[in-house]
Simulated scan of single mutants.
Amino acid sequence: MVDPGDNISRIVSTLEKHQLTVKQIVVTHAHIDHIAGAQRLKQLTGAPILYNQNDLPLVKMMDVQAGWLGIATPDVAPPDASLEDGQTISITGLTGSILHTPGHTEGSVCLYLPKQALLLAGDTLFAGSVGRTDLPGGNTQKLIQSIHESLLTLPDEVTVIPGHGAKTTIGTERDSNPFLQ
């Protein structure tokens, strides 16, 4: 499971419908809309939560993040293990590597599955855009550098699944994303 937001009942329903078991909970970054359901899902499944420890300051200010949205503060905790650049993540039939892409947050990561030509980009890269950097932990220079060094080096045909919005490809973003020119 990647980035369980707040709709855990829908996630559990989908898991049951397809007879799936959660083995790991990967969080691309510790903004509330990506991490809010991780602890609850761990309680229900026993799966460990994995995210980069550089986002612990964001976890410590979860009450502030909840205040921005006017919602209750979710139960969050430090990761069971930190995701580090180059680390391999494997479950049955799938192997991916972690790309540490600081900029949206200090701990932002993407998950690259080379055999599937797929990048789960969190909020680092979007179709025609990049992640915002005006929230705590954001840094525009780091974000653009991370994208150029870690993502635009991937093959053109890699499909990018962002944390929000439409999918795209690395080639399309390299050629036409105005933030990367």
Rank of each mutant, 00 (worst) to 15 (best):
V2Q: 14
D3Y: 05
P4Q: 01
N7K: 11
R10E: 08
I11W: 00
V12A: 01
S13I: 00
K17A: 08
L20R: 11
T21H: 03
T21P: 03
V26A: 09
A30F: 02
D33P: 00
R40C: 03
L41D: 00
Q43R: 13
G46H: 03
L50M: 01
Q53W: 13
Q53L: 11
N54W: 10
D55K: 02
L56Y: 13
V59K: 07
M61T: 07
V64P: 08
L69C: 14
I71G: 07
I71K: 08
P74A: 01
A81R: 15
S82M: 06
L83T: 01
E84T: 15
I91T: 11
L94V: 15
T95C: 13
I98K: 08
T101K: 06
T101L: 10
P102N: 02
P102Y: 05
G103L: 01
G107P: 14
L111N: 10
L111K: 07
Q116S: 11
L118Q: 02
L119M: 07
D123K: 08
D123R: 06
D123F: 03
T124A: 06
A127N: 15
G128T: 01
S129Q: 01
L135M: 12
P136T: 10
G137Q: 06
N139K: 04
T140L: 12
K142E: 11
L143H: 03
S146Y: 02
S150Y: 03
P155S: 11
P155L: 01
G165D: 04
G165V: 11
G165C: 05
K167W: 15
I170W: 09
D175A: 12
D175I: 04
S176E: 10
F179I: 01
Q181I: 05
